[in-house]
Nucleic acid binder design. Structure first.
Lengths: 238, 238
DNA sequence: CTCTGTGAAAACATTCACAGCG
DNA sequence: CGCTGTGAATGTTTTCACAGAG
């Protein structure tokens, strides 16, 4: 069908995708500096820590408003607040993990999630024999409870930690149950309908990128894990 | 005029960074198709599975030579072979994991690594009380053994699965011991000297990207985990 | 026909460079 | 001054569109 592109009506400024990726890094570095007792930071200093140019940092931050104070730099606490709001980190997120294997269990025990405002409130596994067992203090439930628990616990994000074969099916179940986004650890591309968020992490792809760097001889400093590619369309709206 | 393009001496064609990321995805999809018994694939079909345009797939593959057969598509087995060679996947990699916490243990038990040719042959942990314990059939060793074991076992890649604070130190020790690349799971940027590969995976950054998509309202289909940014420089050489 | 490989055009992202604020 | 915010310039990646192979 009509393969014609048509801008939808309500576009906001549109965030370059790479910039969206860097926002998380700014937040991580800023928090670390706040802890160290620093009060302000310049784009140059921030860029230095992150391997970016000062201009890049300023451009990224300017996408969302005027946070800087000429001559002084950025007030760290203030900037953290703003970024958190922008990134949806001002609310608490309720998360479930599907799959109580090695990866699922490691994620449930990963304290940093809770500390950062992502609370894991339920764990599911297709293997009935695990039901009732506890992982990190949370009882493992059967897949058949998924819809009910997601609703009852008002879970809005799901993490897929099952083998490749079951992953898409789990994704469909999560979306049907009402989650708004999925973090996928299974080594395959997951399709979700428009409006549902999806981010994937593939350990093997990450190791493979590393092998490629080593085998090929790379030239640049620090590179990301990689996974699913974009899908040919505008960046982000708001 | 000028200074005459100062291309550094030994450059090969130069791989666009995003293309390097996609290579892993091609390999993953192609292997899956080979298993299903398919023999050839077109750029269009491959792109469809991966959320890319056919032109993109062709451009990427053409970077390394002429693999396609006009009118027919690409021979899957042949293309897999070529890609594996290009990506350094034709050799076996010997890997160690530093950190026997939740994440370290999950990685050691992640079978796919071995199946894909990344063999984990040693595990280290700074907590002496763990030494001697086994994880996934591999004894946990003290950090003080790191240099000797890396040399003796001819380990060429290291995985960092320790808390943020110790991560850079572990990286330095790994590099000093002779690994050629590092996969970092600690939530901070790791610096390594030129010539050493580095890829990072940060679970919190991944969840945060997801929260951002949901909070902001994204428009595209499937997006990557994110982590450390490039460092402003040419793509890759060979 | 189908499908690749590839220049040329378009879109996108980064860096430069500077006006202007505190 | 130092440092931000930002247009304009540059560099990079994607898409288009088509010649040519089987």
């Amino acid at each position: 069908m009509g393969p014609m592109a048509q801008r939808k009506p309500n576009d906001r400024p549109a965030i370059p995708r790479p910039a969206a990726r860097r926002l998380s890094l700014y937040l991580r570095e800023l928090s670390s500096r706040l802890e160290s007792g620093e009060q302000t930071v310049s784009s140059k200093s921030l860029g230095r820590s992150l391997g970016l140019t000062d201009a890049q940092v300023r451009k990224d931050l300017a996408l969302f408003g005027q946070f800087g104070h000429p001559g002084r730099g950025y007030a760290i606490a203030e900037l953290i607040d703003s970024l958190r709001k922008i990134m949806g980190r001002d609310r608490a997120w309720r998360v479930c993990v599907v799959g109580a294997g090695n990866i699922g269990r490691a994620l449930v025990s990963y304290d940093r999630f809770r500390r950062e405002g992502f609370e894991i409130v339920a764990v599911f596994d297709g293997d009935g024999s695990l039901s009732g067992r506890e992982v990190g203090g949370i009882p493992v439930r059967a897949m058949s409870d998924l819809a009910a628990v997601v609703a009852a616990e008002r879970i809005n994000l799901g993490i897929i930690a099952v083998p490749r074969e079951g992953a898409q099916q789990v994704a469909d179940a999560l979306v049907a149950a009402g989650v708004r986004g999925i973090l996928n650890f299974a080594p395959r591309r997951i399709e979700v309908r428009e409006g549902i968020g999806i981010v994937s992490v593939d350990f093997t792809v990450a190791l493979e990128q590393l092998a490629f760097q080593v085998a090929f001889g790379r030239d640049d400093a620090d590179r990301s894990d990689g996974d699913h590619p974009p899908d040919a369309e505008a960046p982000m709206r708001g």
